[in-house]
Design a protein around this nucleic acid. Structure first.
Lengths: 197, 197
DNA sequence: TCTAAAACTTACCGCTTGGTAAGTTGGGAT
DNA sequence: ATCCCAACTTACCAAGCGGTAAGTTTTAGA
């Protein structure tokens, strides 16, 4: 039951932090949504910062679980599968995408936070995946990273854009875009890979 | 002198909002950096929300000014020039990129804010530019938008990543990436355009 | 059944927040 | 000279913030 409340607090905190950012949410707001006082939350996590850290930790753990999913043979297909998995993961847990994007924006200031470089193993793996591709074998780290980071940007930027795009193009407009996206994304990935002479 | 103070307040507010977000900055902090009290700021802008709105307005005005810069003949080269201009604009005014990215994250909550759809004319122009390209003439709006939005994502995501990437790969690592990026980006754009059968 | 720790609550605290109210000052037009 | 308005300031406020301290209830194990 103890772990239960802890988990439920994290479950409440995640979407709130995603939507309003660290400063935009009070610990009282998080706790009260479960019918608890903020001191119950402080009992479990000690401080707001630590709570946020736990949320971050949980998210990056969930992301790491994705890695195994894309085991395959051909390096090109592996990379594509991985990136497409990332995209569909984004669509299911937009909160995570949003929080990580916020972290990207905020971590200049909170550079001390441990979770700051959650991206590191991630990016290193991606670089390795790129360099495993025949015509990218001779690519420098920077070159490989630049390419893959652009794809990552394409995926994650779209992942946080739903409200805005719906606002601009309407619900049906967004739906159409959403269904056109993966095909287009795969095309982009393939051509990005193939683009190297 | 009046307009001067107003402008100077906006100049102060912009980088602060960029770095800490709407909730992360107090109006007192903004004003005091100019040796003023927060009431001077409130005198000029009425409320914090309105100040933020003005900052946003100024930024999107600046972005619109970019549009004209890429006038050219060939539609492919026009689009490329435009997107590359966007990228180098990002590098010069990271604050603007960061604020717009924050807006993308926040505007679910502040959907009432007028400036919310600042992206609209932007995206519509991009769509038009894509559909002006021969092999994209028959593309649906969704298809064209999906493609161009991916490129936009690639550009803007990188635009806010400097602190994180420097943290992960070190200063020289980032510098190398930064110089590899435009070449790679142009390659990506060209292959994205060419990718349509 | 007793004990002790975990899981809370109530009561505070000092500080900061955005915003209002009521002046004060200084320059320009009449 | 005076009137006036813009550009400020000082004073104040209620509400909210994260966090501490000290108590109370619930749960679980010996």
């Amino acid at each position: 039951m103890a772990q239960d409340t802890r988990e439920r607090l994290l479950d409440q905190a995640e979407p709130l932090f995603a939507e309003r950012g660290f400063y935009g949410v009070s610990i009282a707001a998080i706790a009260s949504e479960l019918g608890l006082t903020k001191q119950a939350l402080l009992h479990h996590f000690g401080s707001k910062e630590k709570l946020y850290g736990e949320v971050l930790k949980r998210i990056s753990a969930r992301f790491e679980a994705l890695e195994t999913a894309s085991a395959g043979s051909d390096p090109v297909e592996r990379l594509i599968a991985y990136l497409l998995a990332l995209h569909s993961h984004d669509r299911f847990s937009t909160d995570a995408t949003r929080i990580l994007m916020r972290e990207l924006l905020d971590n200049k200031r909170r550079a001390d936070t441990a979770g700051t470089w959650y991206l590191k193993p991630f990016l290193e793996q991606l670089i390795a995946m790129v360099q495993a591709i025949p015509n990218w074998r001779s690519a420098s780290v920077s070159e490989a990273l630049a390419m893959v980071y652009q794809l990552l940007g394409a995926i994650n930027y779209f992942g946080i854009s739903q409200p805005t795009l719906t606002g601009i193009f309407g619900e049906p407009g967004y739906k159409a875009l959403e269904s056109a996206f993966p095909t287009q994304l795969e095309r982009l990935i393939r051509s990005a890979i193939a683009s190297r002479p």
